[in-house]
Structure formats: C-alpha cells, structure tokens
C-alpha cells in the first residue's frame, strides 16, 4: 500500500474552498507556497500611466499534499471540483509516487507518518 504526492497549482482565490473540500474527504495536512506561473492563458495586460504593460507570469498557489493510494481519487476529485471555474487559468494537478515519509517528531516511517 503506497502513497502519492499531489502537487496542485490553483487560483489564489480558491485556497479556502479547496482546503475545505479536501478536509471534507478527510485530508487535513498540506503545504501552500505562493508561486508565479503561466499556462495557455500566457500573461495579462495591466494599465500603465497611458497604455498598458504586460505581466507574463501570474500569481498562483502551489499546494502539496500526501495521501494514501486509496484516498487519491476522491482527493483529486474534491480538489479539482473546488478549484474549477471553467475558465483558462484554473491550474493543474501533478501526481507523484512517493518513496517514503518520515514524521520528524516521532521518527515514524511510512503509513503512520502520513
């Protein structure tokens, strides 16, 4: 029985909805990082004094969470449903296999450390 790491790039304004959605399927722990990035949306134009200037990388959040294999599908489903607006810029979810996990406080490894 393994675990997976879910790395999700989401809209900044969707953080609380995503947090509550994954908590609803029993996943509490996560790490959030402020990042900049771009996808098919590319950059955007912002107002300058006269005319505009281009911003090529948009602010996003990167969520990292680790789940048991059995919880993966419902976690991904909850996360993507909560993060979705249907417009370009909703983000991506990357899923990795994990080797091992260590809980720093107790030294527990593997399953109990999730």
């Amino acid at each position: 029985m393994g675990f997976k790491k879910i790395e999700a790039i989401i809209r900044t304004e969707k953080l609380d909805e995503v947090r509550m959605a994954v908590e609803g399927v029993g996943i509490v722990g996560m790490t959030v990082t402020e990042v900049k990035g771009r996808g098919s949306q590319k950059g955007i134009l912002l107002e300058w004094r006269a005319g505009e200037y281009r911003v090529e990388f948009l602010p996003k959040l990167k969520l990292e969470l680790v789940v048991h294999d059995v919880d993966l599908e419902k976690a991904v489903e909850a996360l993507s449903a909560a993060a979705r607006t249907g417009k370009v810029g909703d983000g991506k979810i990357f899923i990795y296999s994990m080797e091992d996990i260590v809980r720093v406080r107790t030294g527990e490894r593997g399953r109990p450390a999730v």
Binding site: E47, W48, R49, A50, G51, E52
Partner: peptide
C-alpha cells in the same frame, strides 16, 4: 476618463 475610455479607470493614471 481617458484610461477608462481605453479600458478601465486606472489609479496610476489618475495619480499621473
């Protein structure tokens, strides 16, 4: 007003 006609009422535009 000029920035608004262009796109949106810009605060940087108003200050300038």
């Amino acid at each position: 007003l000029m920035s608004w006609i262009h796109k949106r009422p810009s605060v940087l535009g108003l200050a300038t």
